[in-house]
């Protein structure tokens, strides 16, 4: 079934206040900025946002943060936006910090039917506090739970009509993992091409993971 095409504003109708959202990107590369801007313009609020960063001050998810609509942020590196620190100090936002590899694997597990997994990363550190640890073959591992979301907002380079996706350079980052780990995936793309024109060997995200396409 072809992916549904919408404008960024129309695509926001699929999001509800209180949703858990995944948002792709590393820094501002691979962030679906048009979708994030459209989200900022809605009245929706109270989100749990799963994203590596929360933008930079006044950019990307930084806008959503500054309008007070992020209840909780789950990610790895919020230091790029000092506003996150301020909001955290003021008790306005809850933060869950994960090592980046654990974050990726939690996304991959979330989309793959795996509820939790053991990783050596963070064993014996503060980030493992309160988490189950177990020794396999003499090495300590930490039990980490999968991440899932109601909606993911991701950025790809090109889609075909069906929603098959290809990405561009280091803008790929977390986007393919998030497309798998959410109930509904909204993709911002630079271009939509007819089906049959993408090299099947080059498709990174098969169309079954994609629900809605928005051209950026």
């Amino acid at each position: 079934m072809p992916a549904i095409r919408k404008t960024a504003e129309e695509a926001m109708e699929y999001i509800r206040s209180g949703n858990t959202l995944m948002v792709g990107g590393f820094g501002l590369s691979g962030v679906p900025l048009k979708l994030v801007d459209a989200l900022v313009k809605t009245d929706l609020t109270d989100f749990t946002v799963i994203s590596n960063n929360i933008g930079t001050p006044g950019q990307g998810l930084g806008k959503l943060l500054n309008t007070g609509r992020i209840k909780k942020a789950v990610g790895t590196y919020f230091t790029t936006n000092p506003d996150v620190g301020t909001a955290y100090q003021q008790g306005k936002i809850e933060v869950e910090l994960l090592p980046q590899g654990t974050f990726c694997e939690a996304l991959r597990a979330g989309g793959s039917g795996i509820p939790a997994f053991y990783t050596p990363t963070a064993a014996g550190t503060e980030l493992a506090a309160g988490k189950e640890q177990r020794v396999f073959d003499g090495q300590s591992y930490v039990l980490e739970k999968a991440l899932k979301a109601d909606v993911s907002l991701i950025k790809a380079h090109k889609a075909d009509d069906l929603g098959n996706l290809v990405y561009y350079k280091t803008a790929r980052n977390f986007n393919p993992l998030m497309a798998m780990a959410s109930d509904l995936t909204i993709v911002e793309v630079d271009e939509i091409v007819p089906k049959g024109t993408l090299d099947p060997e080059a498709v990174i995200t098969p169309h079954l993971f994609v629900d809605i396409l928005v051209t950026g």
Partner: peptide, 13 residues
């Protein structure tokens, strides 16, 4: 307040 860990832990492990 430290709100960033990034990839350092995975890299070193």
């Amino acid at each position: 307040t430290v709100l960033g860990v990034g990839g350092a832990m995975d890299l070193v492990v």
